[in-house]
Amino acid sequence: MSVSTAELDRARAGALGLIRSELLKIRTTNAWWWFALGMLGWTLIALAFNMWFAYFAFNDPGMLGPEAGGFTSPEYHASNIYTSGQFLGLMFVMLIGILMVTNEFFHQTATATFLTTPRRTVVIMSKLVTAVLIGMAFAVVITAIDLAAGAVFFHTQDLGTMLGEWPVQRAILLNLVAFGVWTIFGVAIGTLITNQLAATITAAVLYLVGTQLAQVAFFVLSAWLDSEAVLHWQVIVPSTASQVMTLGGEGIPGSPEWWVGALVLLGYAVVAGVVGTLITRKRDIS
Protein backbone atom coordinates (compact mmCIF):
# COMPACT_ATOMS: atom_id res chain seq x y z
CA MET A 1 0.00 0.00 0.00
CA SER A 2 1.39 3.38 -0.90
CA VAL A 3 2.17 5.98 1.71
CA SER A 4 -0.75 8.39 2.11
CA THR A 5 -0.38 12.13 2.44
CA ALA A 6 -2.01 11.86 5.87
CA GLU A 7 0.84 9.59 6.94
CA LEU A 8 3.37 12.11 5.68
CA ASP A 9 1.51 14.90 7.49
CA ARG A 10 1.76 12.98 10.74
CA ALA A 11 5.49 12.39 10.34
CA ARG A 12 7.62 14.25 12.87
CA ALA A 13 11.37 14.32 13.06
CA GLY A 14 12.14 13.22 16.61
CA ALA A 15 15.45 12.82 18.38
CA LEU A 16 15.24 9.05 17.91
CA GLY A 17 14.72 9.39 14.18
CA LEU A 18 17.75 11.64 13.89
CA ILE A 19 19.94 9.24 15.85
CA ARG A 20 18.66 6.35 13.70
CA SER A 21 19.51 8.40 10.63
CA GLU A 22 23.06 9.03 11.92
CA LEU A 23 23.53 5.35 12.73
CA LEU A 24 22.27 4.46 9.25
CA LYS A 25 24.81 6.84 7.73
CA ILE A 26 27.58 4.89 9.42
CA ARG A 27 26.15 1.42 8.82
CA THR A 28 25.59 2.03 5.12
CA THR A 29 29.23 2.84 4.35
CA ASN A 30 32.34 0.70 4.67
CA ALA A 31 34.63 2.90 6.77
CA TRP A 32 33.49 1.61 10.18
CA TRP A 33 34.44 -1.91 9.15
CA TRP A 34 38.06 -0.92 8.59
CA PHE A 35 38.17 0.90 11.89
CA ALA A 36 36.71 -2.14 13.63
CA LEU A 37 39.39 -4.39 12.11
CA GLY A 38 42.12 -1.91 13.08
CA MET A 39 40.86 -1.73 16.62
CA LEU A 40 40.62 -5.50 16.92
CA GLY A 41 44.16 -5.97 15.63
CA TRP A 42 45.57 -3.34 17.95
CA THR A 43 43.69 -4.71 20.97
CA LEU A 44 45.19 -8.16 20.43
CA ILE A 45 48.71 -6.69 20.15
CA ALA A 46 48.20 -4.55 23.25
CA LEU A 47 46.83 -7.51 25.20
CA ALA A 48 49.84 -9.63 24.33
CA PHE A 49 52.24 -6.86 25.32
CA ASN A 50 50.45 -6.00 28.58
CA MET A 51 50.32 -9.63 29.62
CA TRP A 52 53.99 -10.08 28.82
CA PHE A 53 54.77 -6.97 30.90
CA ALA A 54 52.65 -8.21 33.82
CA TYR A 55 54.19 -11.68 33.63
CA PHE A 56 57.69 -10.27 34.10
CA ALA A 57 56.57 -7.81 36.78
CA PHE A 58 55.12 -10.71 38.81
CA ASN A 59 57.77 -13.33 38.14
CA ASP A 60 61.00 -11.49 37.44
CA PRO A 61 60.71 -7.84 38.66
CA GLY A 62 64.48 -7.45 38.33
CA MET A 63 63.94 -7.32 34.54
CA LEU A 64 62.15 -4.00 34.90
CA GLY A 65 65.06 -2.28 36.62
CA PRO A 66 65.44 -0.90 40.13
CA GLU A 67 62.62 1.63 39.81
CA ALA A 68 59.93 -0.95 39.18
CA GLY A 69 58.33 -0.16 42.57
CA GLY A 70 54.77 0.67 41.56
CA PHE A 71 54.74 -1.70 38.61
CA THR A 72 54.55 -4.84 40.72
CA SER A 73 51.04 -4.00 41.98
CA PRO A 74 48.51 -6.56 40.60
CA GLU A 75 45.77 -3.86 40.58
CA TYR A 76 47.85 -1.77 38.20
CA HIS A 77 48.30 -4.68 35.82
CA ALA A 78 44.67 -5.73 36.06
CA SER A 79 43.57 -2.18 35.16
CA ASN A 80 46.10 -2.14 32.35
CA ILE A 81 45.19 -5.51 30.86
CA TYR A 82 41.42 -5.04 31.18
CA THR A 83 41.67 -1.75 29.27
CA SER A 84 44.05 -3.07 26.60
CA GLY A 85 43.62 -1.43 23.22
CA GLN A 86 42.75 1.95 24.69
CA PHE A 87 45.63 3.87 23.12
CA LEU A 88 44.85 3.35 19.42
CA GLY A 89 41.19 2.51 20.12
CA LEU A 90 40.62 6.07 21.30
CA MET A 91 42.27 7.38 18.14
CA PHE A 92 40.10 5.18 15.95
CA VAL A 93 36.83 6.29 17.56
CA MET A 94 38.00 9.90 17.34
CA LEU A 95 38.54 9.39 13.61
CA ILE A 96 35.03 7.91 13.30
CA GLY A 97 33.68 11.05 14.99
CA ILE A 98 35.64 13.23 12.57
CA LEU A 99 34.28 11.31 9.57
CA MET A 100 30.71 11.68 10.87
CA VAL A 101 31.03 15.40 10.20
CA THR A 102 33.61 15.76 7.42
CA ASN A 103 31.88 13.13 5.24
CA GLU A 104 28.91 15.52 5.06
CA PHE A 105 31.13 18.16 3.52
CA PHE A 106 33.33 15.84 1.47
CA HIS A 107 30.33 14.19 -0.19
CA GLN A 108 28.18 17.36 -0.08
CA THR A 109 25.49 15.60 1.90
CA ALA A 110 25.43 18.50 4.37
CA THR A 111 22.88 20.10 2.06
CA ALA A 112 20.45 17.18 2.33
CA THR A 113 21.08 16.87 6.06
CA PHE A 114 20.38 20.53 6.82
CA LEU A 115 17.40 20.66 4.43
CA THR A 116 15.89 17.75 6.36
CA THR A 117 16.73 19.33 9.73
CA PRO A 118 17.30 23.09 9.36
CA ARG A 119 17.96 23.42 13.11
CA ARG A 120 21.67 22.76 12.97
CA THR A 121 22.16 22.57 16.74
CA VAL A 122 19.81 19.59 16.73
CA VAL A 123 21.85 17.94 13.96
CA ILE A 124 25.12 18.35 15.85
CA MET A 125 23.51 17.17 19.10
CA SER A 126 22.25 14.01 17.39
CA LYS A 127 25.73 13.45 15.96
CA LEU A 128 27.25 13.85 19.44
CA VAL A 129 24.78 11.39 20.99
CA THR A 130 25.32 8.91 18.16
CA ALA A 131 29.08 9.34 18.51
CA VAL A 132 28.91 8.42 22.20
CA LEU A 133 26.80 5.35 21.40
CA ILE A 134 29.24 4.19 18.73
CA GLY A 135 32.31 4.88 20.86
CA MET A 136 30.78 2.92 23.73
CA ALA A 137 29.74 0.06 21.44
CA PHE A 138 33.31 -0.35 20.22
CA ALA A 139 34.54 -0.14 23.82
CA VAL A 140 32.12 -2.87 24.92
CA VAL A 141 33.43 -5.26 22.26
CA ILE A 142 37.06 -4.49 23.11
CA THR A 143 36.37 -4.84 26.83
CA ALA A 144 34.70 -8.21 26.28
CA ILE A 145 37.86 -9.45 24.55
CA ASP A 146 40.05 -7.95 27.31
CA LEU A 147 37.93 -9.57 30.04
CA ALA A 148 38.07 -13.01 28.46
CA ALA A 149 41.81 -12.91 27.81
CA GLY A 150 42.66 -11.14 31.10
CA ALA A 151 40.63 -13.50 33.30
CA VAL A 152 42.47 -16.49 31.85
CA PHE A 153 45.84 -14.75 32.35
CA PHE A 154 45.26 -13.85 36.02
CA HIS A 155 44.08 -17.40 36.71
CA THR A 156 47.37 -18.72 35.38
CA GLN A 157 49.12 -16.31 37.78
CA ASP A 158 47.03 -17.62 40.71
CA LEU A 159 45.51 -14.17 41.27
CA GLY A 160 41.85 -15.09 40.59
CA THR A 161 40.32 -12.70 38.07
CA MET A 162 41.18 -9.46 39.92
CA LEU A 163 37.69 -8.27 38.93
CA GLY A 164 36.53 -7.92 42.54
CA GLU A 165 38.81 -4.91 43.17
CA TRP A 166 37.12 -1.51 42.98
CA PRO A 167 40.08 0.29 41.28
CA VAL A 168 40.01 -2.39 38.58
CA GLN A 169 36.23 -2.11 38.12
CA ARG A 170 36.56 1.66 38.03
CA ALA A 171 39.25 1.49 35.36
CA ILE A 172 37.04 -0.73 33.19
CA LEU A 173 34.02 1.58 33.54
CA LEU A 174 36.02 4.74 32.93
CA ASN A 175 37.59 3.16 29.87
CA LEU A 176 34.07 2.89 28.41
CA VAL A 177 33.49 6.55 29.22
CA ALA A 178 36.80 7.51 27.59
CA PHE A 179 35.72 5.94 24.29
CA GLY A 180 32.50 7.98 24.36
CA VAL A 181 34.34 11.20 25.13
CA TRP A 182 36.93 10.69 22.38
CA THR A 183 34.23 10.21 19.77
CA ILE A 184 32.79 13.53 20.92
CA PHE A 185 36.22 15.07 20.38
CA GLY A 186 36.14 13.64 16.89
CA VAL A 187 32.78 15.24 16.05
CA ALA A 188 33.98 18.57 17.44
CA ILE A 189 37.24 18.45 15.47
CA GLY A 190 35.21 17.68 12.33
CA THR A 191 33.11 20.79 12.82
CA LEU A 192 36.25 22.88 13.37
CA ILE A 193 38.17 21.47 10.37
CA THR A 194 35.64 20.41 7.72
CA ASN A 195 38.32 19.34 5.22
CA GLN A 196 38.38 15.58 5.68
CA LEU A 197 42.03 14.99 4.91
CA ALA A 198 43.22 17.93 7.00
CA ALA A 199 41.05 16.97 9.96
CA THR A 200 42.00 13.29 10.08
CA ILE A 201 45.72 13.88 9.59
CA THR A 202 45.91 16.74 12.08
CA ALA A 203 44.03 14.78 14.72
CA ALA A 204 45.97 11.55 14.21
CA VAL A 205 49.37 13.30 14.25
CA LEU A 206 48.49 15.36 17.33
CA TYR A 207 47.29 12.21 19.07
CA LEU A 208 50.26 10.02 18.19
CA VAL A 209 53.12 12.51 18.27
CA GLY A 210 51.65 15.41 20.25
CA THR A 211 51.37 13.36 23.41
CA GLN A 212 55.07 12.44 23.39
CA LEU A 213 56.10 15.98 22.41
CA ALA A 214 54.05 17.39 25.28
CA GLN A 215 55.71 14.91 27.64
CA VAL A 216 59.16 16.03 26.54
CA ALA A 217 58.14 19.67 26.87
CA PHE A 218 56.90 19.07 30.40
CA PHE A 219 60.14 17.32 31.39
CA VAL A 220 62.22 20.17 30.00
CA LEU A 221 60.04 22.72 31.77
CA SER A 222 60.22 20.76 35.02
CA ALA A 223 64.02 20.56 34.86
CA TRP A 224 64.31 24.23 33.96
CA LEU A 225 62.05 25.40 36.81
CA ASP A 226 63.53 22.70 39.06
CA SER A 227 60.00 21.73 40.06
CA GLU A 228 58.48 18.23 40.18
CA ALA A 229 55.02 19.75 40.52
CA VAL A 230 55.10 20.94 36.91
CA LEU A 231 54.96 17.30 35.80
CA HIS A 232 51.49 16.95 37.35
CA TRP A 233 50.22 19.50 34.84
CA GLN A 234 50.74 17.01 32.05
CA VAL A 235 47.19 16.00 32.76
CA ILE A 236 46.03 18.96 30.68
CA VAL A 237 47.06 17.03 27.53
CA PRO A 238 43.84 15.20 26.55
CA SER A 239 45.41 11.80 25.86
CA THR A 240 47.34 11.94 29.13
CA ALA A 241 44.13 12.95 30.89
CA SER A 242 42.34 9.85 29.67
CA GLN A 243 45.26 7.64 30.75
CA VAL A 244 45.20 9.25 34.18
CA MET A 245 41.45 8.76 34.30
CA THR A 246 41.64 5.01 33.73
CA LEU A 247 45.02 4.14 35.30
CA GLY A 248 45.79 7.25 37.38
CA GLY A 249 46.76 7.09 41.03
CA GLU A 250 47.38 3.35 40.72
CA GLY A 251 51.01 2.53 40.21
CA ILE A 252 52.18 5.66 38.39
CA PRO A 253 54.17 7.60 41.00
CA GLY A 254 53.27 11.27 41.25
CA SER A 255 50.26 10.99 38.97
CA PRO A 256 47.17 13.08 39.81
CA GLU A 257 44.00 11.34 41.02
CA TRP A 258 41.78 9.66 38.40
CA TRP A 259 39.01 12.23 38.80
CA VAL A 260 41.38 15.05 37.80
CA GLY A 261 41.82 13.35 34.45
CA ALA A 262 38.05 12.80 34.22
CA LEU A 263 37.34 16.50 34.87
CA VAL A 264 39.94 17.64 32.33
CA LEU A 265 38.49 15.31 29.70
CA LEU A 266 34.93 16.42 30.45
CA GLY A 267 36.01 20.05 30.18
CA TYR A 268 37.55 19.49 26.75
CA ALA A 269 34.48 17.60 25.54
CA VAL A 270 32.12 20.39 26.62
CA VAL A 271 34.25 23.17 25.13
CA ALA A 272 34.81 21.26 21.89
CA GLY A 273 31.11 20.40 21.54
CA VAL A 274 29.95 23.97 22.17
CA VAL A 275 32.51 25.57 19.85
CA GLY A 276 31.76 23.03 17.12
CA THR A 277 28.01 23.65 17.37
CA LEU A 278 28.40 27.43 17.27
CA ILE A 279 30.64 27.27 14.21
CA THR A 280 28.27 24.93 12.37
CA ARG A 281 25.30 27.24 13.05
CA LYS A 282 27.10 30.12 11.34
CA ARG A 283 28.54 28.25 8.39
CA ASP A 284 27.26 28.84 4.85
CA ILE A 285 26.56 25.52 3.14
CA SER A 286 27.42 25.92 -0.52
Binding site: V3, R12, G17, S21, T28
Partner: peptide
Protein backbone atom coordinates in the same frame (compact mmCIF):
# COMPACT_ATOMS: atom_id res chain seq x y z
CA UNK B 1 30.02 4.49 -1.21
CA UNK B 2 26.34 4.45 -0.21
CA UNK B 3 23.59 2.98 -2.36
CA UNK B 4 20.92 5.29 -3.74
CA UNK B 5 18.28 3.48 -1.71
CA UNK B 6 20.26 3.84 1.53
CA UNK B 7 20.80 7.53 0.77
CA UNK B 8 17.01 7.99 0.74
CA UNK B 9 16.57 5.79 3.84
CA UNK B 10 18.92 8.09 5.79
CA UNK B 11 16.76 11.12 4.91
CA UNK B 12 13.50 9.29 5.55
CA UNK B 13 14.68 8.32 9.02
CA UNK B 14 15.67 11.88 9.89
CA UNK B 15 12.36 13.30 8.60
CA UNK B 16 10.30 10.60 10.29
CA UNK B 17 8.69 9.42 7.02
Amino acid sequence: GRTGRNHLRVICAAAGF
